[in-house]
Amino acid sequence: MTFVRLGYVAMSLKVPNSSPSQTMTITNFKKIQNKGAAILKLERITRSNLHNTLRILRHNAANDIQFYRMTSRLVPLATFEGLPDWDYMAAIEDSLKEVGMFVVEREMRVDFHPDHFVLINSPKKEVLKMTVKTLILHKRLLEGMGIDPKHRCVLHVGGVYGDRELALERFIHNWMLVPTGIQDMIILENDDKLFHLDDTLYLCEKLGIPLVFDYHHHIAHHKNKHWEDQWDRILKSWSASHLPIKMHISSPKSEKQFRAHNDFVDVKMFMDFLNEIKGSVDQIDCMIEAKRKDEALFKLMDDIKQYENIEINDGASFYIK
């Protein structure tokens, strides 16, 4: 028997006017002639994003959802080089603590998945520098919430840059340039185009990084389609983590747009995965990457009730026997 928790990404479609990703472009920032006034507007936007994050977390708690991915866009322009002296943490200290207290008191699992421009294996020094700067932002936000940053940031391996083997070795080289406190945050995910499960496991095992298995990505892009042959290695990558093993679940939009995410999760596809891994691990947290966000989670919970080997625990978790 395995305990399964479901989570979803960033936006709720059930909580009105609750975007946690409101932003301001650099262009609009520069249009405000008074820099102090522009910074005050950035801070208002950030506090609004954190307020909406708390609203979503309250919605999650009311619906038994204990697993949630926060947006990486909570603080607009936080890494903008034109604002080197902006102390955004001072402006949002109370808001961060409020979010963090709610998460900790309800024993929720939250994490981040920084955007595609965060590239540890980039051959460009300035890209690596910005990558580290962005990851430091995530670490500061988690620490400001009172949440242990360890294993809270999902990344892809990065780009191939014309040579897959060299790109993997550059990741290892650049990893040594990343501060230890940032290294500890990272968990790596197999992707749907460039670095398959075998590539990602190679890095995870070499560098001691947990692997987030994306089932949809694996079906779309693999060296060996039999992912279950590697399942013990995936589990072992989490052995040093204080968090349960994590995976991503989504379904293809269509045969022609196979890599794109569907609005909802195909329950049969999900059950195919669960029936393979049941009993191999006590608990697994499954992040739903579907267009309909929390609606997809609620539908999946309804769909899964039809299976005899499922025992519902609450509104967002169950046991598979």
Rank of each mutant, 00 (worst) to 15 (best):
S48H: 09
L119F: 04
V265I: 11
N28K: 13
K291Q: 11
H51R: 15
L57E: 03
N275C: 12
N63E: 02
K293W: 06
Y215D: 00
T134Y: 07
Y68R: 04
K278L: 15
R55H: 11
D87W: 05
N63K: 03
H218M: 01
P244H: 06
F273A: 11
Q22D: 15
V281A: 09
M70C: 10
D94A: 14
F171D: 04
W227E: 07
T25M: 02
D232Y: 10
K35G: 05
N174P: 08
M70V: 03
K31E: 14
M24T: 02
D94V: 13
P76V: 07
H261F: 10
F117K: 12
D64I: 06
F102P: 00
E81D: 15
V160K: 06
V4C: 15
K268Y: 12
F195C: 07
M70G: 04
L74Q: 07
K223Y: 14
H196R: 14
S239N: 15
T79E: 12
F80G: 08
D163L: 11
H59F: 11
V267K: 07
S317L: 06
W86H: 02
G100P: 04
H196C: 14
W227C: 01
A296P: 00
F273M: 14
F171A: 03
I187A: 12
N60H: 03
F213Q: 02
K129C: 11
P16K: 11
K305G: 04
K139S: 07
M101C: 15
R44C: 10
L207N: 01
R55Q: 15
E311Q: 11
L6V: 08
G279I: 07
E107D: 13
D64A: 11
D232V: 09
P244F: 01
I284L: 11
I234T: 04
S122Q: 01
I56S: 03
A37C: 03
R5L: 07
